[in-house]
């Protein structure tokens, strides 16, 4: 129940600290989208906490006029976990990058997702290490030529959204820095999801990996190379809405078909709420040239929320055992009394 309507504007969420990302960095538009979204959530400003790790993305909390904690490389999910358990009323946002979340912090993000606390994760994916000036990251394409891979990277990249689905995430979305309105929608939806909301934001690093996502996000090709998933809507895409996705059960695979050439019922309808993650995993993994890249909320399912279970368990134990009594606890299973009487007074001297 809301007592009063809160009236915040975007500027209420700007800390006033000089923003120090490179000119033209995609992070600016993400910051702007967050600052625009938060006032609409109608939550008291002091309840937002932004927790970040290390990297360009992780400077984010300094620019927000909320509580913020710039922690250490990869560990923001673990800090957020302790914070959320201790105070479930807070709206906790983890801001991280592809290196922070998927390389050094891979272990933590995986466990965060499977535990499903009500925490929002914004993963800024620019497929490069920016702050350390241009080494390949775990999401960099195979063969990427970077400072640490002058002859091309040897590694297969990880797909952040697929990883999240594989980790048991209950909410997985993909958006991009240039999709300004879409970003805000996804963030609002992530906020309202009860459980961990994993939001991958493709973000352009103008300096070290410029145009990394142009092959599908460039305005010229975007409609043909991406698909905007919406729950309950058929999976149709393309400049002329001429392409669609169908499931081929013979080969257990998605396929792109021409909308006009198939019966409407053959076209898949997006159901983000399917418990079985198989289709969501396929959607998240789609890439060119054969498939469009999926954007939007790929998966959104209801699962028990970690901190609620923890506090419920606490209440249940108090119900069954009664509130803890320190004196009894200290006594333990067995005590014995040494009386004055049995002690030889001479020995006491």
């Amino acid at each position: 129940m809301k007592i009063e309507t809160l009236h915040y504007s975007k500027s209420d969420f700007a800390s006033g600290q000089e923003v120090r990302w490179c000119p033209g960095c995609g992070d600016y538009s993400i910051l702007s989208a967050v600052q625009k979204t938060l006032p609409e959530l109608e939550l008291e400003k002091e309840k937002f906490v932004f927790v970040s790790g290390i990297g360009c993305s992780s400077r984010f909390p300094y620019y927000m006029n909320t509580y913020g904690f710039h922690t250490i490389h990869g560990r923001a999910p673990a800090v957020a976990m302790g914070l959320k358990i201790s105070n479930p009323d807070l709206s906790v946002w983890v801001v991280t990058g592809d290196g922070d979340a998927l390389s050094i912090g891979g272990n933590h993000i995986y466990h965060l997702l499977r535990r499903n606390p009500d925490i929002n994760v914004l993963l800024f994916n620019n497929a490069i290490y920016g702050l350390t000036k241009g080494q390949y990251s775990p999401t960099s394409a195979h063969g990427s030529v970077t400072k640490s891979s002058p002859y091309g990277s040897l590694e297969e990249p990880v797909n952040a959204a697929s990883f999240a689905i594989g980790s048991g995430a209950t909410f997985v979305a993909r958006t991009a820095d240039i999709l300004v309105k879409h970003m805000a929608q996804v963030m609002a939806e992530g906020y309202h999801h009860e459980g961990t909301a994993f939001m991958e934001v493709l973000q352009n690093c103008q300096i070290f990996n410029n145009g990394a996502f142009d092959s599908f996000l460039d305005k010229e090709v975007r409609e043909d190379k991406t698909i905007m998933l919406e729950h309950g809507k058929p999976m149709i895409f393309g400049k002329n809405k001429d392409k669609a996705l169908r499931f081929n059960s013979q080969i257990f695979s998605l396929e792109v078909v021409e909308t006009a050439k198939v019966a409407p019922e053959e076209i898949l309808v997006h159901n983000a709420e399917l418990d079985n993650p198989a289709l969501h995993a396929m959607l998240s993994a789609m890439k060119g040239p054969d498939f469009p890249v999926a954007f939007g909320v790929i998966r959104r399912v209801k699962k028990p929320v970690y901190e609620k279970l923890l506090h419920q368990q606490e209440e249940d134990v108090i119900q069954s055992k009664g509130k803890g009594n320190l004196e009894e606890l200290l006594q333990g299973r067995e005590t014995w009394r040494i009386d004055d009487a049995v002690v030889d007074p001479e020995l006491l001297q």
């Binding site: 800090v79 976990m81 302790g82 914070l83 959320k84 358990i85 201790s86 807070l90 108090i318 055992k321």
Partner: peptide, 25 residues
């Protein structure tokens, strides 16, 4: 029942980091 919250973390680092988050809270 003493409002002791134990969190078996994924590793030693997360154990410390989660304690920092709890202290912050």
């Amino acid at each position: 029942n003493f409002r002791i919250r134990t969190f078996q973390a994924e590793d030693e680092i997360a154990a410390m980091a989660s304690a920092i988050g709890a202290a912050y809270a």
